[in-house]
């Protein structure tokens, strides 16, 4: 995901440069954009010009997606825990807690399609873990075990006790999807 994001950012930077150059060039040559329009109109369905326009459009789409990823990342790096010590402060982001909770849940038995989100970051952080479970399992037992494991791992890693870990079972996974 990080690599994909970096590729999208790279494409965006490249495109921004190309669009800027085209903008400057069209300001200097008034027929520039008109000639491009004519070339597209006269070109065949599978011609190079149309393919280039298609590629540029796709790249623009990539730029929009990368901007969305950026906003998502900014929000997830919001501090969830703040600790003060003699040297300054230590802030731990929501993303850190979400990653830890997700990894613990991934290693648990009978838990699939895991999504984690930190909520209520202004006061005490709490974590919501949405999972799917296979049929014929004790959901309260799985939930209790998961809460204990996540709480313990976060305590061990951050030194902070997360009091509220909400497990949401939002589906039953089909037998053939089990690993």
């Amino acid at each position: 995901m990080v690599k994909l994001r970096k590729v999208l950012i790279f494409i965006s930077v490249l495109l921004a440069g190309l669009v800027s150059i085209a903008g400057v060039y069209s300001a200097l040559d008034s027929d520039f954009l008109y000639n491009i329009g004519n070339s597209i109109r006269n070109a065949g369905l599978f011609s190079g010009v149309r393919l280039a326009v298609l590629l540029v459009s796709l790249a623009f789409l990539g730029m929009v997606i990368s901007i969305l990823f950026t906003f998502q990342k900014k929000d997830s790096t919001k501090p969830a825990i703040k600790i003060s010590n003699a040297g300054g402060t230590v802030s731990i982001s929501s993303q850190t807690l979400e990653s830890l909770a997700k990894l613990v849940a991934k290693n648990a038995d009978n838990v699939y399609d895991i999504r984690t989100i930190v909520i209520d970051t202004d006061s005490k952080p709490s974590i919501e873990v949405r999972v799917k479970v296979p049929p014929i399992v004790s959901i309260p037992a799985i939930s209790a075990s998961l809460q204990e494991s996540i709480r313990s791992k976060i305590m061990e890693t951050t030194g902070t006790d997360i009091e509220n870990i909400r497990i949401v079972v939002d589906g039953i996974i089909e037998a053939d999807r089990k690993q």
Binding site: T77, G88, K102
Partner: peptide, 24 residues
Amino acid sequence: KKTVERMTGMKVAEANIHVQSVNI
């Protein structure tokens, strides 16, 4: 703090750490 103070002679008043993510 030690490195910056040793190399620059300036006083580090605060070094605030922001843990953005954990490597899985």
